[in-house]
Measured scan of single mutants.
Amino acid sequence: SRSVIRSIIKSSKLNIDHKDYLLDLLNDVKGSKDLKEFHKMLTAILA
């Protein structure tokens, strides 16, 4: 869910600018399909 993804971003080791950017992107995501794609992208970034 959106709140879980937000929590993953906030607890990541990324610097604050990257976190803010990803949180802004997350706010722009519409629909469950796009949310799944965003989660895939985030997982790849944090891997």
Rank of each mutant, 00 (worst) to 15 (best):
S7T: 09
S32W: 15
Y21R: 09
R6D: 04
L42D: 02
I16W: 09
D17S: 11
L26Y: 02
M41C: 06
K40D: 07
F38R: 00
R6L: 09
K19N: 01
S11I: 05
K10W: 06
E37I: 13
I8F: 07
K33M: 07
L46D: 01
K13L: 08
L22W: 04
S11E: 09
S12N: 02
G31H: 07
N15L: 07
F38T: 01
R6W: 05
D20E: 14
D24F: 14
Y21E: 05
I45G: 02
L46V: 05
Y21G: 03
K10Q: 11
S12T: 03
T43L: 15
L14Q: 01
Y21A: 08
Y21P: 00
E37R: 15
L14R: 01
A47K: 11
L23M: 07
A44P: 03
R6Y: 07
K30T: 08
V4W: 08
L35V: 04
L25G: 02
V29L: 07
R2P: 04
T43I: 14
H18K: 09
V29F: 04
L26E: 00
L23C: 03
N27V: 06
V29E: 03
F38W: 03
K40L: 10
K30G: 06
R2T: 06
D34A: 15
G31R: 06
R6V: 13
A47Q: 11
N15Y: 06
K33T: 08
V4T: 08
M41P: 00
I5L: 14
H18Q: 12
K13R: 12
I5R: 02
L46F: 06
L46K: 01
M41N: 04
L14K: 01
K19S: 02
A44C: 06
V4P: 03
S32L: 12
L35S: 02
S1G: 07
S7K: 13
T43S: 10
I8L: 14
S7P: 00
D17A: 13
N27A: 12
I8E: 04
S32P: 12
R6M: 14
K30M: 07
R6A: 11
D24H: 14
I45L: 11
A47D: 08
D28A: 14
V4C: 10
V29R: 04
D24K: 15
L42R: 00
S12K: 02
V4Q: 12
S12A: 06
L35K: 02
H39V: 15
L22D: 00
M41V: 05
